[in-house]
């Protein structure tokens, strides 16, 4: 089999995604775990690029790596380093966790079942089309999501700073 750059990129991305995800699950040190998560999130951006969706890729970097991951790290920095060493990987809630994990797996597989057979999602589409569909056909959904996020933001402010001094 002849290897071209796209194939190399595919295998490299797969390896990085799996390594990042595995690190995020199997590491006991919370900082390295988050680093693994960061590698995984970046590799997801790589997948979007691989399938030709540059805008979604950069949005992934902007929101998840530059925003969410930094907030997680920010929260971890406030943690007190435990004197008793690192926490155990096993959980008391093994059964509940298993139920949730199976449920999520079923959800993902059923929603992606068209593509499980080996057919890849449609590639391409100009970035401008995302804007057109977001502010066209999907405008109500877009607005609803915006209102929901605004409500969450206001709620957070009320919870944090609601007390009158």
């Amino acid at each position: 089999m002849e290897l071209n750059l796209a194939d190399i990129a595919f295998w490299l991305l797969s390896a990085i995604s799996i390594a990042g995800a595995a690190t995020a699950v199997f590491t006991r040190d919370v900082m390295r775990l988050t680093l693994g998560l960061g590698v995984f999130l970046l590799s997801v951006a790589g997948w979007f690029l691989y399938f030709g969706h540059a805008f979604v890729a950069i949005a992934q970097v902007f929101v998840y790596v530059g925003g969410v991951l930094v907030l997680i790290l920010f929260a971890i920095m406030f943690l007190h380093r435990s004197e008793q060493g690192l926490p155990e990987l096993t959980s008391r809630h093994a059964l509940d966790s298993a139920v949730v994990a199976v449920g999520v797996a079923v959800l993902v597989i059923t929603s992606l079942r068209e593509y499980v057979t080996g057919q890849l999602p449609t590639v391409g589409g100009a970035d401008a089309e995302i804007g057109v569909s977001l502010l066209g056909a999907y405008l109500p959904h877009f607005e609803a999501a915006g209102v929901l996020l605004l409500a969450a933001l206001v709620a957070a402010v009320v919870i944090v700073g609601g007390e009158k001094r």
Partner: peptide
Amino acid sequence: SIGMLFFLAVPSLSVI
């Protein structure tokens, strides 16, 4: 095609 966003999004990663 996403250069403007790229310039804003990528350097902010250095905060990690």
